[in-house]
Design a protein around this nucleic acid. Structure first.
Lengths: 163, 163
DNA sequence: CAGATGTCAGAAATACTGATATGG
DNA sequence: CCCATATCAGTAGTTCTGACATCT
């Protein structure tokens, strides 16, 4: 797939712009990650483990917005390359906490530089206030969709209408 | 491991929030579209044809951020269900302009109501100014990534046909 | 038993690559 | 010849669904 170019002058919908922005940044990430033999989900996994040190497969899947099955495949690929480790047996329950290995941390460091550069480039021209407002607005949009569609004080899905 | 709480304490990055917002809205769209036997790409196709009346497969693919191959499959599925039509032979060149049929317009109307409701719910609580700024910021982010990363003293990616 | 997790299996949609052909 | 388009074929990564076992 080539570049993400808008077809027309009607791209003023938040939903469409979100999709376009996501597709664009994903393409950019894919481009810089490919030379390191990393897919976007794989990088997301490394980044999450970098920030949280220890996360189970299910936690990684939720945080990366993929299924447990997909994340499990990602995790295995990273394990086979010696970038992450998982104990053979769970310390508690069934969840085995994955963590970065030395080479995993090294590769993540290299990849994060490239990815952070994309992030930096993306917000170029936005003031601190603009960026702060963007983050706040996005968080609000997410919260609005996650929360039940009930604007007024209510604790339950009383009516399906809500339109 | 214990709690199944969202990992979420790192949601201050624009890129991560974009991904999360996209994943969330996609899930919502999928939920309301499924009863109509429509996938998100299929709805995107209907919506684009509704707005542009006539678009070729390649144009639809670019606008929906999918490959031509994928869009071709989507288009065929919609054609088989009598929702869109394509001339057997191209009026000019190889591009055959697809357009909605009567039932296609009907289904799109029904689907767009549900999708627009999601969009409306997503921006609930945002002022007109907030929403306008969000749109502007997203457009700026997209433009920043599409444009070449040439801050100053450009040496230019003159090499690599990139093709 | 309920809930979360891990894992396996099959079906499906999507994407990527390469190749071929046609029209401007 | 170059470029965009359409299409076919094969491969791969991802998702969904269902199922089953394990552990709290």
């Amino acid at each position: 797939m080539g570049k993400a170019q808008p077809v027309g002058p009607l791209d003023t919908t938040v939903g469409y712009l979100l999709k376009q922005a996501e597709a664009t940044i994903r393409g950019e990430m894919d481009a810089v990650l490919r030379p390191m033999d990393l897919s976007v989900p794989q990088y997301a996994c490394l980044e999450l483990l970098h920030q949280h040190a220890e996360l189970s497969n299910a936690e990684l899947a939720r945080a990366a917005f993929v299924t447990r099955q997909s994340m499990n495949l990602v995790l295995r690929g990273l394990e086979d390359r010696g970038l992450v480790t998982r104990p053979d047996i769970a310390a508690t329950g069934r969840a085995r906490a994955a963590e970065l290995t030395g080479s995993g941390r090294t590769l993540h460091a290299r990849a994060s530089v490239a990815v952070n550069e994309i992030e930096r480039r993306m917000v170029t021209g936005l003031s601190r206030d603009d960026e702060r407002r963007l983050v706040t607005a996005l968080q609000a949009c997410i919260a609005n969709l996650v929360a039940p569609a009930v604007p007024v004080g209510d604790s339950g899905p009383a009516s399906s209408g809500a339109a």
